[in-house]
Design a protein around this nucleic acid. Structure first.
Lengths: 340, 340
DNA sequence: ATGAAAGCGCTAACAG
DNA sequence: CTGTTAGCGCTTTCAT
């Protein structure tokens, strides 16, 4: 900020009232004479007054902003985030809820050790009232750091270690089962999987559910190649799978981006989708629609989940300190398009 | 923030010194006896002290955070941002510079009218020291709002209206020329373009440069279909082009995402790339690499440009109020891969 | 219904 | 080199 901005004091002088009265008008407190309200309002207009956030925060201990932290690591982590529509849905879902309540969502990236430190400092020094975190690492220390700093926090997905913190999550096993059952119902018999990282609970559970569907139907455990949620890793996994099982006729990929990578490789190897090989993705992100062919996929209601996160956080910020952590579990749903 | 956090006062008492001394140690000011420094540091350790941002900001008039605002509008704007790696590069480039200087970058979205209002309030009330804005609308009112509020601001791309503000930009015409010349050199003779929105200066200039290359070589003005930077719009534009000019043998798309959409449509129409139709994209984002085939494209040094933005902003925040606006122009570069 | 006054936690002169 | 003292701009009792 720049040139000496007008303060409450200036407005008060201009309107011929006290600071307290101006403050009441600004904050919409009742018990102010309507005529004086007008007086003050026009004085605010004339002076171009804007409340100073720091001053207000200092006394109210509220900032009105919520940090939305995307946490992970590795090369080009930020690049990966901006290549997977999944994160856009999280941001959108959370923003919708927060905006309606006049809370400002700010997006932060904890993509490296120093970055994480800066981010933790940011919220811990009171620049945000709380944190919504979506982490793509199994061993992410961020939630515990936040908790230790007494920052109200809600997670997307249950953490690997048991931590007393609220979170929203999906019934991943049910999702994997949906995918497996659909491929079987289509008549696929030589089915493989491109899994998410198995150190991730979501990765393990999606795969477990998928396997469960197959074995329950009397099939062997399927071959699995592990990916890391990126298009590239999906392509690589599919290449491996194809080499070792050229006769594969059905593939379940643990997210849409990897499914797209798989589709690219399959086509390059002359396989028609879904005729020769059926492909099922996971997420139902915008990629599922733009992929060629459009993906049959397991829908994860990400926007709803993110909005729920924001709601949980709001309650935690306002409510009693002793609020029990909540875990909200959402149900996946199969969306059938062309790929399977 | 939560339970009564320890203050400077607490630390001072614990260490048996004055508040001022503790403040000096915390802020790394010299002129403090080493033994006392240790005393203070261990007191900080013991109490778990963290400086209160609001209090500090109130007196220093600095927040140590910079807003990175992505501005635009329309359905699913946030979704679009998270589907085009371009934005990830901007974020990455800016973050690199800021992090190294202990400034916290926070990402904000101005995706609707109310959102823009909230975002402007946020910076204007002093929650950030300045704003870096990347806008995808020709008529975006954000820059002017920010300027009117005396918020130090730097833009990605020159604004449509003439506004006295610093910005970084690309020589788009040179980029278009590069694309045109490459297609010609490959031997393409029936060349078309998928342009960016022509209300955007970047859209007009890329196209103008491209046309220039063709006409200079004695070719007619090429057919053009306009897109809006999305994969879908690229696919639609290609469909139109193919219908009206089935014999097209070269295509220039004004960004990689639209080039990818074009490739999908071309393949579905049985065209081999680059054999039947050569395709040149723009940006050199990660999509250029993951696209099938990998895209020949005009590289825009986005990370460097974003870092330069951050630098310009830094200078503006620190330096004299009267600093002249700077315009930094970057040069594009052709990157040849498989698509052309 | 309005005003006076006391801080919120911190930095920055200014003394010593 | 260290301590004292003013505020930064705002909200919020507490009187009136």
């Amino acid at each position: 900020m720049n040139r000496q901005a007008p303060t409450l004091e200036d407005v008060a002088r201009e309107a011929g009232v006290s600071r307290a009265t101006v403050s009441r008008v600004v904050n919409g407190v009742r018990n102010v004479d309507p005529s004086i309200q007008d007086l003050v309002r026009s004085a605010i207009e004339r002076t171009g007054y804007t409340p100073n956030r720091a001053a207000r925060t200092l006394v109210t201990r509220r900032t009105g902003t919520v940090a939305l932290i995307v946490s992970g690591a590795g090369d080009a982590f930020v690049g990966r985030v901006f290549a997977d529509p999944f994160f856009g849905r999280v941001v959108n879902g959370a923003m919708g809820y927060l905006r309606a309540r006049a809370m400002q969502p700010v997006l932060l990236f904890a993509e490296s050790e120093p970055a994480r430190k800066q981010v933790v400092d940011y919220v811990r020094q009171g620049s945000a009232d709380g944190a919504l975190v979506v982490s793509v690492r199994p061993d992410d220390p961020l939630p515990e750091l936040l908790l230790a700093a007494h920052v109200p926090t809600v997670l997307f997905a249950r953490p690997a270690r048991k931590v007393p913190v609220s979170c929203v999550d999906l019934d991943h096993a049910a999702g994997g089962r949906l995918a497996g059952e659909h491929l079987l119902a289509r008549g696929c018999r030589r089915i493989a999987a491109i899994s998410a990282p198995l150190e991730l609970r979501a990765g393990r559970e999606r795969l477990a559910g998928f396997r469960d569907a197959l074995t329950r139907a009397g099939h062997d455990t399927p071959p699995v190649a592990e990916g890391v949620f990126t298009l590239d890793s999906g392509a690589t996994a599919m290449t491996t799978l194809l080499r070792e099982h050229p006769d594969v006729d059905g593939v379940f990929a643990a997210n849409d981006l990897m499914a797209q990578g798989a589709c690219q490789v399959l086509r390059e190897h002359g396989r028609r989708i879904p005729h020769d090989v059926a492909v099922v993705g996971f997420d139902d992100s915008s990629i599922a629609v733009t992929c060629r062919p459009p993906l049959t996929t397991v829908r994860q209601p990400v926007e709803d989940m993110a909005a729920a996160m924001a709601r949980l956080l709001g309650e935690q910020v306002q409510g009693a300190r002793t609020a029990e952590p909540h875990v909200l579990l959402f149900e996946p749903e199969l969306v059938v398009r062309d790929s399977a």
